[in-house]
Design a protein around this nucleic acid. Structure first.
Length: 293
DNA sequence: AATAACCACAACCGCGTTCTC
DNA sequence: GGAGAACGCGGTTGTGGTTAT
């Protein structure tokens, strides 16, 4: 009857992930690709539920993630999309390659909201507020009348034109290039090949094929989780994920030999400029996760 | 130097949707 | 077609770090 439960919640670990757990999860996904999340913790030897593994991967461990604060341009795009889409963070994230819905949501709540309020703009309605109007009470009222999200395909299509892509390096909101050169470079959507063999679902293939165009395709929702391998044992083996040479640091051979890891290698494989201090600092921040480095 | 207050972000929770049997 | 489970999303909470007192 139905599917098997994703995890029995008894004895599962919660809270912050340890470096060891990260390592296990990364190794597993490197070896096997992203397949059924419910199977991941068991096979990877983790005492976590599949949901937790998926979140950890999509929000933190994915190689294509940009780290660091959102740029001015990205903020503008978030604000603009939020005015049209409301709190549909995954939709918004799909227009910002390398950013996750969680990240955008957090950034919105901690930075952008305040910024907008300072500018005298209601972050919920995106309309100017008169002084004294922005009271707590008012805010609650406003939240009940959040902007009408775009419902139609056409609307979403038009919004997709704002997507940050390699092809269009300018946003609809500004004439300046979308990414500063000192930002962490993205692995472009087209650099990730999702193999679409005959057994792969049409939906996931379509999503992969349209990865660069339209919606960015690298969002947590539209890319990483779209692999359909549910319930077909032959696919559960390992689906649909190949990395180009440029991202082949994820290739198990090298990555599994953690002892030999160096940041220079990491940079190279990620396509990072070894001299980019910002990137390095970001990676240094990450290093706590990989004490073995 | 100690500690309280604040801030940022990772992770969890719950719900709606999708999918399989 | 219905039941039950996985998945994905958005809201909320918890935790660690930083700043102010």
């Amino acid at each position: 009857m139905g599917r098997q439960p994703c995890c029995d919640k008894v004895g599962l670990k919660k809270g912050p992930w340890t470096a060891e757990e990260d390592k296990k999860l990364i190794s597993f996904i490197l070896t096997n690709g992203q397949c059924c999340w419910r199977a991941v913790p068991k096979l990877a030897g983790l005492l976590r539920c599949g949901k937790s593994c998926r979140l950890r991967w999509t929000n933190y461990l994915r190689p294509d993630l940009k780290r660091g604060l959102l740029s001015e341009d990205e903020e503008k795009i978030v604000i603009d999309l939020h005015s049209k889409l409301g709190n549909r963070w995954s939709k918004i994230a799909s227009h910002l390659p390398g950013r996750t819905d969680n990240e955008i949501k957090n950034h919105w709540n901690t930075h952008i909201k305040k910024k907008l309020r300072k500018m005298g703009i209601d972050p919920i309605t995106h309309k100017p507020v008169t002084p004294g109007e922005a009271t707590e009470k008012n805010e609650k009222l406003c939240s009940q009348s959040s902007p009408e999200p775009a419902e139609t395909e056409a609307e979403e299509q038009s919004m997709a034109s704002q997507t940050l892509t390699a092809e269009s390096e300018t946003s609809s909101l500004g004439q300046t290039p979308v990414f500063c050169t000192d930002e962490v470079p993205m692995i472009e959507p087209h650099e990730i090949i999702v193999s679409c063999d005959a057994s792969a679902s049409p939906a996931s293939c379509a999503a992969a094929a349209s990865g660069g165009g339209g919606g960015g395709g690298l969002s947590s929702s539209s890319c990483s989780s779209s692999v359909d391998c549910s319930s077909r044992p032959e696919e559960i083996q390992f689906p649909c994920m190949e990395w180009l040479d440029s991202v082949d640091f994820w290739g198990l051979d090298e990555f599994s030999t953690w002892d030999h890891f160096s940041f220079d290698e990491w940079d190279g494989k990620l396509g990072l400029d070894p001299l980019n201090q910002f990137q390095r600092s970001v990676l240094d921040q990450e290093a706590w996760k990989f004490e073995l480095f």
